[in-house]
């Protein structure tokens, strides 16, 4: 039976420190299993969020050896166990306790985005007709499990703290899902440009890399949104950006 040592950040909004826990590792185990084992046997009060244990709910986000990931989908056999594995909360959000962070900002941001507004129904029974290929793209965006790992990794939020000016990749995906919904008739471009700050994104693609749902956040959601904004407003800088950007 092998063991692994976890160096887990314990603390709250006032600060904290790393504490080492060594636990047994069995076949097929994921990081979340190890955390649960530590919780049950060594640290009953170790705080972390989880629900589904299958990558479906987006609750168990953390930084594992510095990389934002879902703990329930990170197999132990993908991590070196010859040195301690560090486990930290998502650093772009205020700490609540241990691995749990205050992500309430995200819920407030979402509420600011104008809701879905469908065109009148296509059929007398109140239903619509849409082809599968017309909804494929939107369905990609709707796979989002709101783990907020993309928000965690985006430098505009993490390093530059533009929380009041930029909604972050998750909500650009959300906006894109609404804007590209075949039935939607709302216009969200003015606020996308202004209050929601699509311009802050400089296409580093870090968000796409960490997305556990493999949503191509940058190429499929953000870039088309930027283009729509550019097309909609006479914006010399935007125009220049569009001309100069490498073609994908």
């Amino acid at each position: 039976m092998s063991t692994a040592t976890f160096r887990i950040w314990r603390g709250d909004v006032n600060g904290g420190k790393f504490v080492d826990y060594t636990t047994e590792i069995t076949e097929g185990m994921v990081v979340l299993d190890a955390v649960h084992k530590i919780q049950a046997t060594q640290a009953n009060d170790l705080a972390c969020r989880w629900n589904c244990k299958a990558g479906k709910c987006g609750s168990c986000s953390a930084e594992i050896n510095g990389i934002p990931k879902l703990m329930c989908m990170t197999r132990m056999n993908t991590l070196p166990t010859d040195k301690p594995i560090t486990l930290e909360p998502m650093r772009a959000f205020p700490s609540i306790r241990d691995l749990a962070t205050d992500v309430s900002w995200n819920f407030r941001v979402k509420q600011k985005i104008k809701k879905f507004k469908p065109r009148p129904p296509d059929a007398p029974d109140g239903t619509w007709r849409m082809q599968q290929e017309d909804v494929d793209r939107v369905q990609e965006f709707r796979k989002c499990i709101e783990c907020f790992l993309c928000q965690d990794v985006c430098h505009v939020l993490r390093d530059h703290h533009k929380h009041d000016e930029f909604i972050g990749p998750r909500f650009l995906v959300y906006t894109a899902a609404l804007e590209m919904h075949p039935l939607d008739t709302e216009d969200r471009l003015p606020e996308l440009k202004q209050a929601h700050g699509v311009g802050f994104c400089n296409i580093t693609k870090c968000c796409t890399k960490v997305c556990p749902e493999s949503i191509t956040i940058t190429d499929n959601a953000i870039i088309p949104l930027k283009e729509r904004v550019v097309d909609n407003f006479f914006d010399p800088l935007g125009w220049l950006w569009k001309e100069l950007r490498p073609k994908t």
Binding site: K115, F116, P118, P121, D125, G126, T127, W128, R129, M130, Q131, Q132, V135, V138, Q139, R142, L178, H181, D184
Partner: peptide, 19 residues
């Protein structure tokens, strides 16, 4: 279900564009 579609749900489609 129809109400869900009116609220933005995007279900898989039949070839004639229905749910």
């Amino acid at each position: 279900v129809k109400e869900l579609e009116a609220w933005g749900a995007v279900f898989d489609r039949t070839p004639d564009g229905k749910i």
